[in-house]
């Protein structure tokens, strides 16, 4: 869905360039590769409503940035969320672009 390849200094990734989704991706970036976090725990950390978080996760999932898995823990269903490799790359690019915007003279 994102046509532009690497978000440059002037054009920031529109998927992440929304406060709520930036917060979601930032939190998920703490997880190590292949680790998944339970939905309620992520929700608590972000202090978002469940519905609100679901909406943003859906958008991030559509972009291929996060992976949402539904599983069962005993009898209780559990939803797990992880950042995909693509999502991590997009996040790294986004933070690099932000730093470049702050310190344009440091660009090589």
């Amino acid at each position: 869905m994102t046509d532009q390849s690497e978000p440059g200094v002037t054009e920031l990734d529109p998927v992440i360039h929304a406060q709520a989704r930036l917060r979601v991706v930032s939190a998920l970036s703490v997880l190590r590769d292949d680790d998944r976090i339970t939905f309620p725990r992520l929700q608590e950390s972000l202090r978002m409503t469940a519905g609100n978080l679901s909406v943003h996760l859906r958008k991030l999932e559509d972009a291929g940035y996060v992976e949402v898995t539904k599983t069962h823990h005993g009898r209780t269903p559990a939803t797990l969320v992880r950042l995909t490799r693509r999502g991590r790359l997009a996040f790294d690019d986004y933070t690099a672009a932000l730093r470049a915007l702050l310190n344009p003279q440091e660009e090589s």
Binding site: Q19, A20, L22, R23, S45
Partner: peptide, 28 residues
């Protein structure tokens, strides 16, 4: 916090990123 508005400026965005990373880091 549920709107799609972009963060105000780069410095604020970086602060937001650091805050959310620290928050979840604490939970884990």
């Amino acid at each position: 916090i549920d709107d799609d508005a972009p963060p105000v400026n780069p410095a604020e965005s970086l602060a937001l990123i650091a805050r959310e990373r620290a928050n979840l880091g604490r939970e884990l």
